[in-house]
Amino acid sequence: MSYQKIGVSYEYDKDNFIILNPDQTTERLGLYLSAAVEYMRLFKNGRIFIRLTAATPPAAKKINYPSSFNLMAPLSFNAGYAIPIKTQ
């Protein structure tokens, strides 16, 4: 489940000017899918990994500003270290 918030703000002379039909901050919550490829190196007390992940946008109501922005479909690169906490 993915929650996305796209915050929008403007800087301009608000006393003398107006923006016609400004974009508003948008929030969406929905289900998503993602797939990844990963390389993992094992060590005596854990394992290190690097991973490339592609995800779909969340399945949620469409955003009102298609010419400005859409829900995100990220391609991410992550690295981490896995520590064993339970062994049977």
Partner: peptide
């Protein structure tokens, strides 16, 4: 069971 903190960077293709 492993616990694995991670960090990274992402770009959005949409």
């Amino acid at each position: 069971i492993y616990i694995a903190p991670f960090a990274g960077y992402q770009v959005d293709f949409n």
